[in-house]
C-alpha cells in the first residue's frame, strides 16, 4: 500500500506551521506561503487550540466524484490527482472544493486549479511532535 499522511496527535500542535510551509516549498518551487499549500491550521479561539486539517486521501473520494469534467482522478491508495488541468480553467462551479466536507481542498487563483495534496509526506517530515505522520495504511 502507498503511504498516506495521517493526524496522529492533533492535541500536540504548537502552531509552528512547518507542515504548511514544507508543503508550499514542495508544491511551489521553494516558496513559503499559507494560501499555496494543501493543508491548514486554524486557531480556534474558544478552545484556544490549533486545529490542523489535512487531506486524508479518501478512497472513493467525494472531490473526484464531484468533478463534472473528469479533471480529477483517484490516486492509487485514495485521494485526488489532477489529470486534466486544462478543464479546471474554465470551471466556475468548483464542485470539487464544495464536495470536501473537511474544507481541506483549496483553489489556486493563479493556476486556476485546485491545490492537490500529493501525499508526499513532506509535511509530516517537518512536524516536530508527530501531529502529522506519514505511514502505510
Amino acid at each position: 500500500m502507498p503511504a498516506r499522511i495521517r493526524l496522529a496527535h492533533p492535541e500536540r500542535c504548537i502552531g509552528c506551521m512547518n507542515c504548511i510551509f514544507a508543503c508550499s516549498r514542495e508544491l511551489y518551487g521553494g516558496a513559503i506561503s499559507l494560501s499555496k499549500s494543501a493543508l491548514k491550521i486554524s486557531y480556534d479561539t474558544p478552545s484556544r487550540k490549533f486545529i490542523v486539517s489535512i487531506c486524508p486521501g479518501c478512497v472513493d473520494a467525494p472531490c473526484v466524484n464531484a468533478c463534472p469534467y473528469k479533471a480529477l482522478a483517484e490516486q492509487p491508495g485514495g485521494g485526488p490527482i489532477l489529470v486534466n488541468p486544462e478543464k479546471c480553467r474554465s470551471c466556475e462551479t468548483r464542485d470539487c472544493i464544495n464536495a470536501c466536507i473537511l474544507a481541506v481542498l483549496f483553489w489556486d487563483d493563479e493556476r486556476k486549479t485546485p491545490i492537490i495534496c500529493t501525499q508526499c509526506g513532506e509535511c509530516a517530515k517537518y512536524c516536530p511532535h508527530e501531529v502529522i505522520v506519514y505511514r502505510e495504511v
Partner: peptide, 12 residues
C-alpha cells in the same frame, strides 16, 4: 498546559 511557537520554529 502547553507550548506555542512562532511560524517556522519547531521549538515552542
Amino acid at each position: 498546559e502547553r507550548k506555542v511557537s512562532c511560524p517556522l520554529c519547531p521549538i515552542g
